[in-house]
Amino acid sequence: MSAARNKAIDHLGRWLLLGLLLIYTVYNLGPILWLMISSLKGRADLFAMPPTWIFTPDLTGYQSVFGVGAARESASSFGVFDSLVNSVIVSSVGTTLAVLLGTLAGYVCSRFDFRGKGDFLFFVLSTRMLPPVAVLVFYHIMFAKLGLADTRTGLVLISVFANVGLATWIMKGFFDSVPREVEQIAIVSGYSRLYAFRHLVLPMVKGGIAATAGFCFIFAWNEFAFSSILTTTQAKTLPVKISTASGATGIEWTQICAAGVVLIIPVLIFFYLIRKHLLMGMTFGVLGRS
């Protein structure tokens, strides 16, 4: 009897779990799906009530985001393409620099002792703890004086400042997992440390570099607070642009939705590419030495 009952409870539990997962999935993916559908609707379909499920796809939103076709020149376009270019440049240059510096600093912190190393590591991390809003005004003034206001260079600098600490820490962790013997064998064999670093250690932390780059890129790509204050016309990034979007003919929802989709895609691609390394990064302690 109790076996049958247990089975029933088992069944119930399973359905309950399934239901909860479904709700969770809809909660998470629903808005994204909504966004994607909306990005393909023309103005008329977009505001139809009840919502239309069958409609002719309208690609003008995407055309204007990527600056192709007639949409770019049309009066309703509000220059999303330029901010996409800004975002791509700022995020990729910023990420490259942060990863480069973070890799070098992470290696030094992993392998060498120097006075004040603990303080240095804390300081470097504390740059990430800073709530941007707290210092925005001063950055604004500083950047204005330095001629960096509303420039991509300024945003790249911000992105490097914000990410180099994180990059240093993550890379230090990856270097810590590479046994020192890797270099020591090479050094005893007659190679320089630089050679060992470049040709032996770096290839072993390739995954770590990818993961770090992924993190930095996503932070840079999503950065909003600084960009919204420090840019006015020239250097607006995509997130800022979307939030302030209005064209000559009012708020261009189709363009906003298309831009929103474009904003999500790089993040998806990055996480897809680095998922293996992320997992590895998270299980580091367990791997031990081999």
């Binding site: 020591q184 032996l200 030495r289 081999s290």
Partner: peptide, 17 residues
């Protein structure tokens, strides 16, 4: 420097590249 001492070393772990 280590490279000038002409010694060879074998460690417990990570023996090879």
């Amino acid at each position: 420097r280590p490279s000038e001492r002409n010694i060879a070393m074998v460690f417990q772990f990570v023996s090879l590249y």
